[in-house]
Design a protein around this nucleic acid. Structure first.
Length: 261
DNA sequence: ATGTCGATACTTTATCGA
């Protein structure tokens, strides 16, 4: 079972690219972030034509997450628990039947948090608290689950071209990295790190300053696996090639292959 | 210091968010 995540930076601007990638990569589940669309504006029909079931949690103009799945959804849960007043569309979870059980997949768009002297940074840290609490509850189910998305977290200096250049940024602040480690320390596995020892492998290159041409990237899109999912992990790869396409997203897809036998 | 995108609105240029 191939499960992918991709921050597409606007579905209206990226529809043709997403369709092309889906036809080439043929993921069973694709988690999308930053759709920047309301539910009713999301082009579900284009994906249904490709054989996908579609779940959308949208918002006008900003944020927004979706899940495309070749298997039917047994369950769909939108919104991260822990703050009823949070109106930002950043979390969507689907449950799918596999042979002998289920697999749960979440599409996550973790807050950016910049500038760090605004209320956006404490919002990011609080959101990470909520994600950790939610993950802790999911772990009690002892199911395979995958938390996939744009974490807006550079886990270590090995995941950025120039650590100095990102010093003080919300994606690389010590508080952010500590929160991310706390999440991992519940017993989750960073799928890419489990499959690759190479450092300086990126999933995002800024549109500015020729970042792509100079390979000045960061690794901020992650798939975190429960122990039951990690035991089934076969592969994890970054589809770098989409960054060289016409009208690219600033992020590229990351995917795993899970043995669901 | 700046460079780029995408979406939005009292749009045709500025603003915000990233």
């Amino acid at each position: 079972m191939k499960i992918a995540t991709w921050n597409i930076n606007g579905i209206k601007a990226r529809l043709d690219g997403v369709v092309t990638w889906l036809e080439q990569a043929t993921p069973d589940v694709a988690c999308l972030q930053e759709i920047k669309s309301q539910d009713e504006g999301f082009p579900s029909e284009r994906f249904e034509e490709l054989g996908y079931n579609v779940a959308v949690h949208g918002q006008k103009g900003f944020n927004g997450v979706a899940i495309l799945s070749k298997r039917p959804f047994d369950e769909i849960n939108a919104r991260l628990p822990g703050d009823e007043g949070d109106e930002q569309a950043r979390y969507l979870e689907g449950v799918f039947s596999i042979d002998g059980g289920v697999v749960r997949v979440a599409s996550i768009y973790l807050p950016n948090g910049n500038p760090t002297d605004s209320d956006k940074f404490p919002y990011k840290l609080a959101w990470m608290d909520r994600l950790r609490d939610h993950a802790k509850n999911l772990l009690k189910l002892e199911e395979p689950f995958v938390l996939a998305g744009d974490y807006n977290v550079i886990p270590t200096p090995d995941d950025v071209h120039d650590p100095k250049a990102w010093e003080g940024d919300a994606l690389f602040r010590p508080e952010t990295l500590a929160q991310f480690r706390t999440l991992l320390n519940l017993g989750l596995t960073d799928a890419y790190r489990a499959c690759h020892y190479q450092s300086h492998q990126y999933t995002f290159w800024d549109y500015q300053r020729g970042s792509w041409q100079k390979d000045h990237g960061i690794r901020i899109d992650h798939l975190l696996l429960s122990p039951q999912a990690a035991d089934r992990l076969q592969a994890c790869e970054i589809d770098r090639f989409t960054r060289g396409w016409e009208k690219p997203s600033d992020h590229v897809p990351v995917w795993i292959e899970l043995n669901t036998g």
